[in-house]
C-alpha cells in the first residue's frame, strides 16, 4: 500500500506538470464526418449543403443577438468577396427572422445563403459549441477545421487559403 502511494506521487506530479502545458486542442474536430445541413434559408427557399459540393465551404454559425458575431461579420463578408474558390454559408441560430435580416443588411453579409436554425438542430449537427463558430468543409463536404469564437484574418489566411491550392 505504501509502495502504491509512493508510485502515485510521481504519476500525480507528471499529470500536474502536463496539465500546466498548453491544453489548446479545443478546436480539434472529434471525428471525420460529413454534416447534413439542409433546411430553409432566411429568405425562405429550400437549401441543402449538397448544392455546394465541389468547393471548400466556410460555414459560420451566428445569431443577431450575439455581439462577437457582429464584430466578426465584416471580416466574413470581406472574405466572401475576396476568396473566389470558397463558398460561404451562414447558420442563423435561434433567431428572430426580422432581427436576423436586419443584421445581414447591416453587416453586408447577405451575399451568401443563410440557413435558419430556429431550434438549434443544424448547429448541433455541426457540433457547434456556441456562437460565433466557424467550420471549414473540404470539397467532399467533410469538416476539416473549425474555429471557436470570432474569426480572425490570420485564421482565414492560415486555414482557408491553403485549401484553395490543391
Amino acid at each position: 500500500m505504501t509502495l502504491a502511494a509512493l508510485m502515485a506521487v510521481p504519476v500525480l506530479l507528471a499529470v500536474l506538470v502536463h496539465a500546466l502545458g498548453p491544453g489548446g486542442r479545443t478546436d480539434a474536430v472529434p471525428e471525420r464526418r460529413r454534416p447534413d445541413l439542409s433546411g430553409r434559408t432566411l429568405d425562405g427557399r429550400a437549401f441543402a449543403l449538397g448544392e455546394l459540393r465541389g468547393h471548400p465551404v466556410l460555414v459560420s454559425v451566428w445569431a443577431s443577438w450575439c455581439d462577437p458575431c457582429r464584430a466578426e461579420f465584416p471580416l466574413l463578408a470581406g472574405a466572401a468577396r475576396e476568396l473566389d474558390g470558397v463558398r460561404f454559408l451562414g447558420v442563423d441560430l435561434r433567431d428572430a427572422p426580422g432581427a436576423a435580416r436586419a443584421f445581414l443588411a447591416e453587416t453586408g453579409a447577405a451575399s451568401f445563403p443563410h440557413l435558419a436554425d430556429p431550434d438549434g438542430r443544424l448547429a448541433l449537427e455541426l457540433g457547434a459549441r456556441g456562437v460565433p463558430e466557424t467550420f471549414l468543409l473540404d470539397r467532399q463536404g467533410f469538416i476539416v477545421d473549425r474555429r471557436i469564437g470570432a474569426l480572425t484574418q490570420d485564421w482565414i489566411e492560415g486555414h482557408v487559403v491553403p485549401l484553395l491550392t490543391p
Partner: peptide
C-alpha cells in the same frame, strides 16, 4: 488546480505565472 488554469474550461485561456511556482510548493510538500 484552480489557480493555475490547469483545469480551466473551454472559455478561459488564462494561465497564471504562479502555476509553476505553486506546483513547486506542492511537489516539495508532497
Amino acid at each position: 488546480l484552480t489557480r493555475s488554469g490547469a483545469v480551466a474550461s473551454v472559455h478561459s485561456f488564462t494561465r497564471s505565472a504562479a502555476g509553476p511556482a505553486l506546483l513547486g510548493v506542492l511537489t516539495a510538500a508532497l
